[in-house]
């Protein structure tokens, strides 16, 4: 059993939905990331999605692009990111951490090496934005050999046949991208997302979470009504942008936002 499946099982038992915040490793400074990860867990995060900085984050909107640039001014690498997870694991053995990013740093490091280092550090899964399963066959073998989960995205443009294929390929959970667009794009039509989500649910045997367009307690709670979890990215990363010269203010504000979402989600799912 992976840490991710354990976590979803536990949430189900408590009748709760997963809150999955995203931060970019090394944003705004490398020594800050582990602290903010712990703070998010304290305030109610169930799974941490840690962005691996990349120079060409093709699928990201402006907010997260700039976060990658901030991290890269400190040359934060894939190796450094994995090291941060190892540090996080020293005092948190239970919260799943997944690495989200682009394939090139992994190509450069080598699949086997990546899988081994990630496993040793306590990483639980990878979610690669620009690797549909067809392009990730060998990487997947390396990751599964180490017991790591591979998470794939399902998009609003995905056909039913392909959705079934993607859901079958995903391990840990499936990630439904709620809108056509980059991260941090405009408000989503929650009714449409719900309808599409409910249609796609038939294809997955594992939990399915929703990402993109979730920015506050209200939207997180709305998603919690139908999905197994909510991923929050740009809304959190925006706090980093607003306070990049004052990391302590970031910890506090991120904690507050996570707490607001946790509370709102729990009211819906438990209530």
């Amino acid at each position: 059993m992976s840490r991710i499946s354990d976590r979803f099982k536990q949430l189900k038992a408590e009748n709760k939905k997963a809150l999955i915040p995203y931060v970019v490793a090394g944003d705004p400074v490398p020594e800050f990331t582990v602290k903010v990860m712990h703070e998010m867990v304290r305030k109610g995060a169930d799974i941490i999605e840690l962005g691996v900085p990349f120079s060409e984050p093709e699928a990201e909107g402006a907010v997260i692009q700039v976060a990658h640039e901030r991290a890269l001014t400190h040359n934060v690498s894939l190796r450094d990111t994995i090291q941060m997870v190892a540090e996080f694991r020293q005092s948190d053995k239970n919260t799943p951490v997944l690495l989200m990013g682009y394939i090139n740093p992994i190509e450069k490091m080598g699949y086997e090496e990546f899988a081994k280092l990630a496993k040793t550090a306590g990483v639980d899964a990878s979610l690669l934005v620009n690797v549909p399963p067809e392009e990730g066959v060998e990487l997947e073998i390396a990751l599964h050999k180490q017991g790591l989960d591979t998470i794939y995205l399902v998009a609003p443009t995905t056909t039913d046949a392909r959705a079934e294929y993607l859901c079958g390929k995903s391990r840990g959970f499936t990630y439904y991208v709620s809108l056509k667009g980059t991260t941090g794009a405009s408000t989503i039509n929650m009714g449409e997302v719900e309808a599409r989500f409910n249609h796609l649910k038939q294809f997955t045997k594992i939990p399915m979470v929703v990402g993109f367009g979730i920015k506050d307690g209200a939207s997180a709670a709305r998603v919690a009504e139908f999905a197994d979890g909510s991923v929050v990215g740009s809304a959190i990363v925006q706090i980093f942008a607003d306070n990049k010269d004052n990391p302590n203010a970031i910890i506090e504000s991120v904690g507050e936002l996570v707490y607001e979402m946790r509370t709102a989600m729990d009211l819906v799912s438990v209530g």
Binding site: E58, A59, I103, V129, N130, V131, P132, E134, E135, Y152, L153, V154, A155, P156, T157, T158, T159, R162, L166, V177, K180, G181
Partner: peptide, 20 residues
């Protein structure tokens, strides 16, 4: 058929673009 020239090429894109 999958867009490869030897080991090169392919289709490394976000899932949103696969259908397009």
């Amino acid at each position: 058929a999958d867009g490869r020239y030897g080991i090169y090429g392919g289709r490394y894109v976000s899932e949103v673009l696969v259908a397009a």
